[in-house]
Computed example of a mutant assay.
Amino acid sequence: MTEPRPEAQYTFRRRGGDALSPDVRVYANIVKGAILGLSKRSWSGMEHIPLKGPAILVWNHYSDIDPILVVHYVYNAGRHPRFLLKESIVRVPVVGAILKRAGQIPVKRGSAEAADSLRILEDQLAQGHVVIMAPEGTVTKEPDRWPMRGKTGVARLALESGAPVIPIVQWGALGIHDRKRDPKFKLGRKPVTVRALPPVDLSPWRDKEPTRDDLVEVTDRIMEDLRAGLAEIRGQEAPPLFDPRQQRTEESGSSE
């Protein structure tokens, strides 16, 4: 007997994952229809995403539209992903209502609510959901689109919740849309690779009160796993983790 493949088909979801309300299924299928027409997908690693229970999914964020490609992948992996959104996005007519109905979480940057965002995500994990985070907090500033050093929020969330951290690496989104070069979407199906990796080994830091240095080390470990996975799908040697703060310091020093 041939064993079933661990991967979902590109059109259908893995069975046994999160239940969805009918309206969320409709919204998801509308988005999927658009993405299916724009991307020629190469997907792998879905067996690393658990069908049940909490998990923190992290991805290399290098373009405006790669969150949609990652959400498509996670949806087909059988999960209903939750992530934080700028409050301005959920104020957009129709779109905002759909996102909130789908369980996404609006946050005001710089507000007390934003400072409490980790508690919100930890509550989602406690309910058995999966959350998606870009550890850098924004599109990477690395000139060649490699991951840069992340913020420590994902490390704190992982250590406090105990949830596994699963990297998702992806490449190809700029073939569909690159705001810096052309604001228009490119027609035709462009190659897109998305791959989930095994959970990050955080055992050296589990079961103890983390220090600031611990949080930095955990964050770097997560970003290094993302960098290594991206190097594999890009077929290139990855540079050291880019640190935009160090670059600003160097540029400031050179201008004096």
Rank of each mutant, 00 (worst) to 15 (best):
M46D: 05
R181S: 11
Q104A: 02
I132K: 09
I120E: 08
K151T: 09
E217Q: 12
E3H: 12
D207T: 02
L197D: 00
E87Q: 11
R221G: 06
V92K: 10
F83P: 03
D116E: 14
A34Y: 14
D23E: 12
R109A: 10
L157C: 12
A163R: 01
S88G: 06
P135L: 02
P93K: 09
A112I: 08
D243M: 11
Y73M: 04
K86M: 11
P183S: 05
W171Q: 13
K40Q: 13
R245F: 08
I49T: 13
N29F: 13
V71E: 06
A97N: 14
R149Q: 14
A134H: 11
T140N: 12
T249M: 13
R82F: 04
W171Y: 14
W43S: 09
E122P: 03
R101Q: 10
G172V: 07
K180Y: 08
R189M: 10
G253F: 13
T211F: 02
D182W: 15
I176E: 00
T138Q: 11
I65M: 07
V131T: 09
W205P: 12
S44C: 05
L51R: 10
P22N: 10
V131E: 02
G16V: 08
T138G: 05
Y75A: 06
V71N: 02
A28F: 12
V71C: 03
L84H: 01
S44W: 08
V92E: 02
D201N: 05
A34W: 15
S42Y: 13
T219Q: 02
R179M: 09
K208A: 10
P183H: 08
E217G: 03
P54C: 09
I166P: 04
S161M: 13
G128H: 04
D225Q: 13
E209P: 06
K190C: 00
V24N: 15
L159W: 13
A28Y: 04
S42I: 08
I89W: 07
R149G: 05
